[in-house]
């Protein structure tokens, strides 16, 4: 474990990068996912189709494939971003499909009368969705969203494939330098647990505070 202690600075920097990747990607995924979910429940057929296509194709492609396709394939189209930005784009796109499905289930779980009441008060579809249904929907799906968030923390490790220096990449590089794989990888694993376990706990607390049990 000496290797880990000696390189604690690198581990901390790696953790900071993992946290940054996760937070930025999750915020973007929440926005995209909610919009896609709204598309999928809207009465406009082209929007519904577009939403379904997005979810079904992106979700069923491995994240690794999306990462290399975007970073090494899209450069040929002149679409070129830094490794961090690329990782954020790919992680948000991938995670947005899971967020969309989760939010959609939340929308479907909101009592029908809520929407009917809102509609009879003269609200339009965007108003019904944005002001009445979505606020309730989010509160029901807090736990599944937390699950998606934790999965994203773990998934962010795939950014190391395009050399973003987050935890996994730090471990990989330290392993190359020190040739002490057990300590190095175990250290990184512990660092991930330091991120995932408190996240699970926080989601639990948040859920008890605001969730609606149905």
């Amino acid at each position: 474990m000496g290797v880990v202690v000696d390189n604690a600075g690198q581990y901390l920097a790696g953790m900071a990068m993992t946290v940054a990747l996760t937070l930025v990607s999750f915020s973007a995924a929440l926005v995209i996912g909610t919009v896609v979910a709204a598309f999928r429940v809207s009465p406009v057929p082209p929007l519904r189709t577009a939403g379904t296509l997005w979810v079904e194709t992106v979700r069923n492609t491995p994240l690794t494939v999306l990462m290399v396709l975007f970073f090494f394939g899209f450069t040929k189209l002149g679409i070129q971003y830094s490794a961090f930005t690329s990782a954020v784009i790919v992680l948000s796109a991938y995670t947005s499909t899971f967020v969309a499905e989760t939010v959609r289930s939340g929308i479907n779980a909101v009592a029908k009368g809520q929407a009917e009441a809102a509609r009879s008060l003269g609200l339009t579809f965007p108003q019904v969705l944005g002001r009445v249904v979505l606020p309730q929907a989010f509160r029901t799906v807090l736990a599944p969203l937390g699950s998606v968030f934790i999965a994203l923390i773990k998934n962010s490790s795939i950014a190391s494939i395009i050399s973003v220096v987050e935890l996994t990449e730090v471990a990989d590089r330290l392993n190359n330098e020190t040739a002490r794989p057990v300590a190095v990888f175990l250290g990184a694993g512990m660092a991930y647990l330091l991120l995932t376990l408190p996240s699970g706990f926080l989601v639990g607390v948040l859920e008890r505070r605001v969730a609606i049990k149905r």
């Binding site: 989760t102 289930s105 479907n108 779980a109 599944p144 699950s147 934790i150 999965a151 699970g200």
Partner: peptide, 18 residues
């Protein structure tokens, strides 16, 4: 059945619900 931290499991549950 869902498991925390496993995204696809969350989604199957969700689709069935929908």
């Amino acid at each position: 059945i869902t498991v925390a931290g496993a995204e696809d499991l969350t989604v199957t549950a969700v689709q069935a619900e929908a």
